[in-house]
Nucleic acid binder design. Structure first.
Lengths: 252, 252
DNA sequence: ATAATTGTTCCGTCTCATGGAACGGTGAAC
DNA sequence: GTTCACCGTTCCATGAGACGGAACAATTAT
C-alpha cells in the first residue's frame, strides 16, 4: 500500500528516457533544460544507456536505440495470445478495409498489442504500445464494461476521466450508463471520443477463464461508419469473430 | 574514447531489466540470485520500475510491462523507411510464401525492424528487435559485404565471430572470402549458419546517399531452398525488389 | 581571430543507494 | 491447528558513489 521508496537515480534515468521518447532525440543540454539536473549528470546517465545500447548517439544527438525494439518485441511475444490476435486483426482489416486494433488493459490503461490498416484504413495516430485511457476508446469501454465492477471503479478512481476531445465522456454517471448499455447490447461505440471525426465499434474478447482478454476494435471516418452497416452488420460480424477467436483459444 | 564513467545504480537497473527479459518474469529473490545485489536493493529497483509502468507485477512475479512496447514502437516508427519496409517485406512474403525480414545494422549488430511469415513461412526464432551477429545471417553478410572495408573490419574486431551453429563461419579469412563473393555476385546465401536446417538468401538495400540501409532476407527450410528457384530466380527477384524499393525511397 | 556554444572530464561534498536485520503474510508440513 | 520455512517488504546506520560546478576540449557563429 504505502508508496514504497524508489531510487532517485533510476527515476532520473527513466525521466531522461521519457524526454528522448517525446522529442525523438535530444542533446545533453536539451535534456538538462527539461529534467532538473546538471549537464554532467545527464551526460553520465546517457553514457550508461549508451554503453548498454539503449540509446544511439549520432553526432551530438542521443536517441532511443534498437534495444527497446528488442524489449518491446519480447513483451508482445510473451503474451501467448499474440499470434492469434495478429491473424484475427489482419483478417478483419482485410474484410472491412478499415483500421483494426486489439487493445489490452494493464495498470488501468489500454495498450494496443496489434493493429492493422485495411485498404481504406484511416489515419488515427494509434501506435502499437502507446497507452491510452480506457474510457476514451470504444475498445477500452468494451473492456471496462466487462471487468468486475469494483475493478472498473478502482480504475476510474485512479486515472480519472480526462478529456481528449469535446466528445469524450468525462462524467462518471454518464460513463456508467454507457457501460451498462454496452453490457446489455454486447458491443461498444465511440463517436469521436478519442479522435474527432472517427467513429469506432468494439467488442470484448474473453480469455479461457472467462476473464477479459482485451477489446477488438474497428475505426473509420464518420461518414463511412453510419447506417445499417455500422450499426448492425459490423457489430454482429465482430461478435462472431470474437467468439471464433475465443473458441480457438480454448483448445490450445 | 575513454570509457566514460557510468552510473552504478543505472547499471543494476538495466541488469535487472535484462534478467526479466531473459526469464520472461521473475520474483525478487530470483533476480537477487542472479544479479549480485541484496534483495532489498532489487526490490527498490523493481518498485521504481513499477511506479513508472515499466514492469507489471502479477502476484510475486515481475515482468516487463507494456511501456516497453510503447518505446519499441517509437523506435521503429522514428525510422523513416519503416513504412516502406513494411510493404516491401509483406509483398515478398506473400509472393514467396516464406519468412521474410529486413535487417538493419546498429552498433555493429543486426536488428530486424520488420518481418513477416508467408503462408509456408517456417519458424525461425527471429524476433523483431532481437539483436544478432551480422556474420550469422545472410542479411548481415549482405550488409557486411557492402559497408566500407574499415567499418567491416572494426565490427569484426569488436564483436568477433562467435559460433551459433556448426555451420557458422568463425574463421576471419573464410568470412572475408565469402564477403568478396557476395560483393561480386550481388547477393548472399546462408546455409544454416544461424539456425540449422534453414537456408536463406539476402540482398543489400541501399539508402538515398548510396550508403547501406539494410539487408532484405528470405528464409526457408533447406529442402525447399534448393535448386534453380533458390539459386537464380529468388535472388534475381529480390534484387529487383530492392532496386524498386531504392527508387521509391529516392523521390520522397 | 574571437566569442559563444557545445560535450566531456575532474574533483570535493554530502546525498542517498546499499546490505543486513527485522517484520508480516502465506502456504506447506506434520 | 500449530509450526516452520520462505516469500516480499520496510527500517536503519553507513560509506560508496551520484551530484553540481568548474575547468577543458572541440565546434560553430560572429
Amino acid at each position: 500500500m504505502a508508496e514504497s521508496d524508489t531510487i532517485k537515480s533510476d527515476e532520473t534515468l527513466l525521466e531522461i528516457i521519457e524526454v528522448l521518447y517525446d522529442r525523438g532525440g535530444a542533446t545533453v543540454t536539451d535534456v538538462a533544460d527539461v529534467v532538473d539536473v546538471s549537464k554532467s549528470t545527464v551526460h553520465r546517465h546517457l553514457a550508461t544507456l549508451q554503453k548498454h545500447d539503449y540509446v544511439a548517439k549520432e553526432g551530438h544527438e542521443y536517441a532511443l536505440g534498437f534495444r527497446f525494439l528488442d524489449l518491446g518485441g519480447h513483451v508482445r511475444h510473451r503474451n501467448p495470445i499474440h499470434k492469434q490476435v495478429k491473424s484475427l486483426v489482419r483478417n478483419i482489416a482485410e474484410e472491412t478495409g478499415e483500421f483494426v486494433g486489439f487493445l489490452v488493459e494493464e495498470h488501468g490503461l489500454g495498450t494496443y498489442i496489434y493493429s492493422e490498416w485495411g485498404s481504406e484504413g484511416v489515419g488515427n495516430d494509434v501506435r502499437i504500445g502507446r497507452r491510452i485511457h480506457l474510457h476514451q476508446s470504444a475498445a477500452g469501454k468494451a473492456i471496462l464494461a466487462n471487468l468486475p465492477e469494483e475493478r472498473t471503479a478502482a480504475i476510474i478512481d485512479e486515472h480519472g476521466l480526462p478529456e481528449r476531445t469535446p466528445k469524450t465522456i468525462t462524467d462518471r454517471e454518464e460513463l456508467e450508463r454507457n457501460l451498462e448499455t454496452i453490457r446489455e447490447r454486447g458491443y461498444a461505440y465511440a463517436h469521436g471520443e478519442h479522435t474527432e471525426g472517427l467513429w469506432a465499434v468494439a467488442v470484448p474478447v474473453h480469455d479461457v477463464n472467462g476473464g477479459i482478454a482485451g477489446g477488438l476494435l474497428v475505426v473509420g471516418p464518420t461518414y463511412r461508419m453510419r447506417g445499417e452497416q455500422f450499426e448492425d452488420e459490423l457489430p454482429e460480424y465482430l461478435l462472431g469473430a470474437a467468439k471464433e477467436f475465443e473458441l480457438n483459444m480454448s483448445h490450445l
